[in-house]
Amino acid sequence: MRIAVLTDLHANREATEAALAAVERLAPDRIALLGDLVGYGPDPVYAIETAERMVSDGALCLLGNHDEAAITGPSGMTPHAHDAILWTREQLSAAHLAFLATLPLSAELPGMLLVHASARTPGKWPYVSQEKAAAECLAATDAPLVLCGHTHVPMIYYALPGREPVRFSPLPHVAAPLSAIRRHVVVVGAVGQPRDGNPAACFALLDTERAEISMIRVPYDTQETARKIGVHGLPDWLGLRLHIGR
């Protein structure tokens, strides 16, 4: 089975459209959205309505911390994220919020667990950004593979039983192998706000038969997204960072 995994759309319409066009060309068997449809970006309505349509077509969609904040109001967020969520809440209808409220924290497919942040305390949104956090994530589940997002930096953690996981930054478009004797945490890069120095939208294509996963990168018009961020009075940095992928 081939699964396209998209995460952290962050209300970025241009990035999402570019990524979905690439997904369509790849024709996967399934699509999974790992959460954070909204927050930071200027098109939350587009992001939610697109996700809703994809879910009705059979896609999986999970809840992210920004989606939760859109429902309940921001708490404990960075100032920019906080401001953006307040603005986002003004744009969304009750129906949009109701859709977000239906989203689960995690989901399972054969041989894998999908979650926005980590299998460990998913609702507390810990970051899997180093080996220790990856080990804790794996300790919280029996699944041989955990797919997550949240950090906006693509990374694969390879774990042998009883040993600290080994981390690897997958190269764009180079299929990274998954091993039959290991468990893995794959952190998928962000569609709508990449932070690994590459501004191109990122998503993953998992091939379970070949036991491989590739990070696909799709360049998009960051100028347009940044312009809209400016027009809506969102913090300038949220637009600037899209140009440099930080």
Partner: peptide, 10 residues
């Protein structure tokens, strides 16, 4: 060069 060095990491 493009794949994880699982051996070196061990």
């Amino acid at each position: 060069a493009e794949l994880p060095d699982l051996l070196g990491e061990e």
